[in-house]
Nucleic acid binder design. Sequence first.
DNA 1: ATTGTGGCCTGCCCGC
DNA 2: TGCGGGCAGGCCACAA
Length: 263
Amino acid sequence: MGGVPELAEVEAYRRLAEEVVGRAVAEVVAPDGWYLKRGLTAPVVAAALAGRRVMAARRIGKLLLVETDGPVLGLRFGMSGRLLVDGRAAVDNLLYGPGRELEKWDRFALRFASPAGGDLRMRDPRRLGGVELDPPEARLGPDALVVTPAALARLLESGAPLKARLMDQSRLAGVGNLAADEVLWRAGLDPSRPARSLTAAERCRLHRHLRATMADLLARGGSHTGDLMPHRQPGGTCPKDGTPLVRRTVGGRTTWSCPHHQR
DNA sequence: ATTGTGGCCTGCCCGC
DNA sequence: TGCGGGCAGGCCACAA
């Protein structure tokens, strides 16, 4: 496991976080003020969570929600953030992360009271993730694992590139750059197609491949386990038909696709 | 309102 | 061997 923190990785983090359900917060460690978002400060988050008990661990897209009997703690992992519980990680290493482990990369932690003890830590070398209290969940679209055909059809009512639309977290939550390329490659759709140019049959095909791909990446253990991934590099060829892959920028992101079968 | 762009952040890799 | 530039991508502020 270990691509970038997309839906598959964050779901693994969520399962790990479930191990702290029932524990009470003894101490909040927030050494990096920059990591606290939306005006949150170390004293505020410490006061809000001290003594609170963890009730559940939920996930919407790439956002991990740690519910307490007080506020909800929202954790975002950027592209290099990982979760550690009692010193153990759900993900060994991330694709674009360092190969080392340094405690100086711990940006935020909850330490739990005895008898359970232990801690929950966010380790993020590049500091692109962040922590917030009571994150506005309504700003996220439906989770990509469970999105309905009707909801997908609605978010495709746009002239924006198909890929940009799939990656817009406010409309569909959980699809990152690697998963987007994999989904569109499997579905045989050109990432730069205007979203609303899809026919009904293509929308149906996209929906099927979207949910299946997200479930597949989750089962395989990460956003980097797609069939396209090993070929997503200079000189790479399409594993379906052998056509040289094309690299370009779509929706502001590096995009690899097959010019032959993705139409 | 919608869509596109740039910058944040840091570690790694390549070429000199 | 060291150094600098380019690159990776989730997310947000900002511009058009």
